[in-house]
Simulated assay, not measured.
Amino acid sequence: MKRSNAVFLALCVPTHALLRFQCAQLVIDRLDPLVTPGMAPSPHLHQILGGNSFNTTMDPTKDMPGESTCTSCSFSEDFSNYWTATLYFKAKNGTYKRVTQKPNAGFDGVNGGMTVYYMQDGLYNFNQVSKVTAFTPGFRMFIGDVNAKTKEEAERFRQLTFTCLQTIGTRDPQILDFPSEPCPAGIMTAVRFPTQASPTCWDGKNLDSPDHMAHMSYPETGSFESGGPCPATHPVRVPQLFYEVVWDTAPFNNRDDWPTDGSQPFVWSFGDATGYGNHGDYMFGWKDDALQRAMDSPCYVNCPTLKTQDVAAMNKCTIERRVDEDIDGWVTALPGGHQASYVKKRWD
């Protein structure tokens, strides 16, 4: 599960069809058209990126690229939507403050958001030569367990991790729960979709499933990274999708403001202060065959087969929040009325 700094540096070397790009923040809102379609507000707050056709329902029969007029992602043909829960700091007095995101290494000037990867052979394999089939319009999926409260439950999604950043380039160690000490350069969360519960073999028929994961399957033997074959029930090999979110926790690193009982002070927007409920959502929305072209071509960051846009255009693509509530000030309860719930973890 470890990714050393040497591996991170290796990502700076051109590879075959490993896309790494930043998406700026489209909106922070209490909407979740994948898990709770049509509900406004949804149970908890999310940070959302991508095409500006994002709405409360996201009808899978609609043409996402056709309905969007802009995208907050660097590849201007990508109108997909990517989202995760938001992070909060809980002060000693019991009030909460939202933690903002900051751009990853190499993406200065982008308004928060997160880094998105699409890969043919996994993050550890830099040859990237396997043939994959791009997702189909209407495809969507989810990874994680919002109700996980123990390490054993979180281990089902063992590649949903946290890294305490000493610098913006820190990549190890990775852990399954929130760091228990202040992190000088922030906290990075990794949301890697192909795990044992939601990997990269698709059944080729269903664009979704009731749990938003069952239409995907783990390779029959081996792993995605080792090139294990897909099972007959899920024969279509699709790209590996991976998010990195850098949370700017440095303004909250004064331990005098942390809980007096020794517990760490960060909490997901749905009330989880263990970190085990880390999760992510995805709705495919690339225009025409853009993603397939990229997966079939030598691409890394600057992909000659794709159209790109500058940082100003990415940051400009935003939408109005649908739910009117305080998401920037100090509040006594998390949006939706949640309160922090956690297993104590001491740092002394």
Rank of each mutant, 00 (worst) to 15 (best):
M1R: 12
S4R: 02
N5G: 07
V7W: 07
V7A: 13
V7P: 00
L9H: 12
A10S: 13
A17M: 05
L18Y: 03
L18D: 08
R20F: 03
F21I: 01
F21S: 07
Q22K: 05
C23I: 04
Q25E: 15
V27A: 10
G38R: 04
M39W: 06
P41N: 06
S42A: 15
N55I: 05
P60V: 13
M64Q: 12
G66C: 05
T71Y: 06
C73T: 01
S76M: 07
E77C: 09
D78T: 03
S80K: 11
Y82Q: 10
A85G: 11
T86P: 03
Y88N: 09
Y88Q: 07
A91R: 03
K97G: 00
T100M: 12
K102C: 01
P103L: 05
P103M: 04
A105T: 13
G106N: 08
F107Q: 06
D108H: 08
G109P: 10
N111W: 01
V116N: 09
Y117I: 08
D121I: 07
N125I: 09
S130R: 15
I143M: 07
G144M: 10
A148D: 02
T150A: 04
T150D: 03
F157Y: 15
R158Y: 13
Q159L: 08
L160V: 08
F162D: 02
Q166P: 02
I168Q: 10
T170K: 08
R171F: 10
I175E: 12
I175K: 14
P179T: 05
P179H: 11
P179D: 07
P179S: 09
P182N: 09
A185H: 06
I187W: 13
V191W: 00
R192H: 13
P194I: 11
Q196G: 15
T200C: 14
T200H: 15
D203L: 10
G204P: 06
D208Y: 00
S223I: 00
C230E: 02
C230R: 05
A232E: 13
V236A: 03
V238T: 07
L241G: 08
F242L: 10
A250Q: 15
F252G: 02
D257G: 07
W258A: 00
P259I: 04
D261A: 05
G262D: 09
S263K: 06
P265L: 00
S269G: 14
S269N: 07
F270A: 04
D272A: 08
A273F: 00
G275F: 00
G275I: 05
Y276N: 15
G277I: 14
N278A: 13
H279F: 09
D281V: 01
Y282V: 04
M283R: 14
F284G: 01
F284N: 02
A290W: 04
L291W: 01
Q292T: 11
C299I: 11
Y300V: 12
V301A: 11
V301T: 11
C303F: 13
T305E: 15
L306E: 03
M314T: 02
N315I: 08
C317I: 03
T318P: 04
I319S: 06
E325S: 08
D328K: 01
D328W: 01
D328L: 03
V331S: 04
T332D: 12
A333H: 12
L334H: 00
P335W: 02
Q339T: 15
Q339D: 09
Y342W: 13
R346G: 09
